[in-house]
Simulated assay, not measured.
Amino acid sequence: MANNNELALVKKDTVDVVASKVKQFQEAGELHFPAHYSPENAMKSAWLKLQEVKAKNGNSYVPILEHCTKDSIANSLLNMVVQGLNPAKNQGYFIAYGKSLTFQRSYFGTMAVTKRVTGAKSINASVIYEGDDVDYEMVNGRIKNLTHKQKFGNLNKENIIGAYCVIDLGHDDVYTELMTIDELRQAWSQSQMWGKEQTKEKKGSTHDNFKQEMAKKTVINRACKKFLNSSDDSSLVIDHFMQQDEKIEEAQAQQEVSENANKEFIDVEYNEVEEDSPPQQEKEQETPTEPQNEFEQAAQDLDKQTQDEGPGF
């Protein structure tokens, strides 16, 4: 791990810079935090977390504060603070893709941002099992008046057929998102832990062992994102909320390009040697290695709870 002097320099170039930027946003009236949220405390918690997190570098793991670029560290902290989130409350996680650090919201964080922006009273999700009685109306393309009757005997993770999330905005204004099991699995298939040919949950995997919770988390994320996408709020918070997935996808894409940059395939032409001809000596051809770019390193394994909220839910 870096010594105290090195850590102090990184902190000066990241935490202090972000704190100054946040102060500018506040003074300009672009950013308002809830009464219970302290950006200073959130960044202190984040800084402690950052000193513990490691990124994969070849066959070993190294501290992300040594491995990732200072710009990406600062941007991930700014993304966290603007959204009013705190990693100490499991509202998000820091994940390295190559040398690019990203802040990835958990579904707790997604709910927190949604409540903050919309003033929602509550956000709740439930799983639908085979044999449950579910009824609702479609009004102007939105689900209305959803009712769900469930019997205790139906509670079996192998019989899940769907899930829904209800965002209660008060004054009889309710937003409902409904997903079938096929839609849930399609979302889960975006996870790096899901095999290419996989169509169902692997026995013993997170999606299998905690299928009910995974279904709830996925539909909550879908509901909050869809609801906020339809919002006409152009605040700084919404901008950062919307940009997060794009930044993560961009970092993943650049990392993939970097990993494949040196995998050059050479098409060699050859002439068939006649049987009586002496064999020609083959000279091994060397392919020059391209210079590494900053995303050359392999991604940190997403074997954490939050990875299921990222693009894989």
Rank of each mutant, 00 (worst) to 15 (best):
S106R: 00
P311M: 14
V268M: 12
C224F: 05
E27F: 13
N293C: 11
T206G: 03
L85C: 04
I128H: 09
K49V: 15
V174W: 08
R185D: 01
I73F: 15
Y37I: 14
W194A: 02
V62L: 13
E309S: 10
E130A: 15
S205W: 03
E274M: 06
K121E: 06
D182M: 06
Y164I: 00
Q24C: 04
G98W: 03
T114S: 00
Q150G: 01
I95L: 15
V268S: 03
N159G: 04
E282L: 12
N4C: 06
M1R: 10
E137Y: 10
K226F: 03
S231Y: 00
D308S: 08
P278A: 14
M179V: 07
D232Y: 10
A74S: 10
Q285P: 04
I248R: 00
K203E: 15
E246V: 15
V117F: 00
N57T: 13
S189W: 06
G109S: 05
H171R: 12
T69V: 08
Q212C: 11
I161A: 08
V174R: 13
E274L: 11
Q186W: 09
K89G: 02
Y107E: 00
S205R: 05
V219Q: 06
S235D: 00
Q292D: 10
F241S: 00
Y93K: 01
K54E: 09
K304Q: 15
K157F: 12
I167F: 01
E259V: 14
M179N: 02
T180C: 08
S76V: 01
A163M: 08
Q300L: 15
A298L: 13
G141E: 02
V273S: 02
G195I: 02
E250G: 04
L146P: 04
D276A: 06
I266Y: 12
D232W: 06
T206R: 11
S76E: 10
G119N: 05
Q280M: 14
K56G: 03
V17T: 09
D303L: 15
N262D: 13
K89E: 05
G170Q: 04
V237Q: 09
Y164M: 05
M43G: 06
F265L: 09
A8L: 11
A125Y: 01
A74E: 07
M80F: 12
A28L: 10
